[in-house]
Design a protein around this nucleic acid. Structure first.
Length: 193
DNA sequence: CAATAGATCATCT
DNA sequence: GATGATCTATTGC
């Protein structure tokens, strides 16, 4: 069962931390890919100048202000797509950028979509890489993550090893640089560089 | 190893 | 018309 709506209906920072270790799943049985979330960043509402939602509701930021548990996917640098997960109650802005994944299932599919990757650890260790590896595109923008082809699941029982959460400033932004809103599994080799 | 250039386009000014 | 929540290849120590 996918994580329920109420998991996402909380402050973005809480959801960002709790998503670590969860499993992102995409595709039908024939072409299924699954990977563990090992790195996230929180983007807040007003006051967070780095967030797309900082300037309020626009056609693009519509889904960030929408109900929690949906995907916000956008094009960056005219070339790559980034996956975010919407948090906070409907009407409030807040989302989590998924920055890195540890591939679990469908690694053959991932390799095919990422021919330049050297090893398993290069398949999805960055926001633009993981959307390619998982086959996520802008057509998933607004998709409901509590049902459908793209979902997030709790780690399987017995599979989950305990881990420590590390915190740092966010990567690749020019505003609100100082905020400690990047979260990752300490020591995990699939975290971005 | 570090630094940098280039690819390429939706969004907002 | 400028600007990115990026990645890759290439150049230079």
């Amino acid at each position: 069962m996918p994580l329920p709506r109420h998991f996402y209906n909380r402050p973005a920072v809480e959801v960002a931390r709790d998503l670590l270790g969860k499993i992102l799943v995409h595709g039908p049985a024939r072409a299924k890919t699954a990977a563990r979330i090992v790195e996230t960043e929180a983007y807040l509402g007003a006051g967070d100048q780095a967030a797309h939602s900082a300037r309020g509701l626009t056609p693009r930021t519509r889904v960030i202000f929408g109900p929690p548990g949906h995907a916000y996917v956008y094009l960056i640098y005219g070339m790559y797509e980034c996956l975010n997960i919407v948090a906070e109650a409907e009407g409030a802005a807040g989302c989590l950028l998924i920055r890195a994944l540890e591939p679990l299932t469908g690694i053959g599919h991932m390799r095919r979509r990422r021919p330049t990757a050297r090893g398993i650890e290069d398949l999805a260790n960055g926001p633009g890489k993981l959307t390619l590896a998982m086959g996520i595109t802008r057509r998933h923008n607004g998709a409901d993550l509590t049902r459908g082809a793209l979902t997030v699941h709790a780690a399987l029982d017995g599979t989950a090893e305990p881990f420590e959460i590390a915190v740092s400033p966010r990567i690749g932004i020019t505003q609100s640089r100082e905020l400690p809103l990047r979260f990752y599994i300490a020591g995990n080799r699939f975290v971005s560089r």
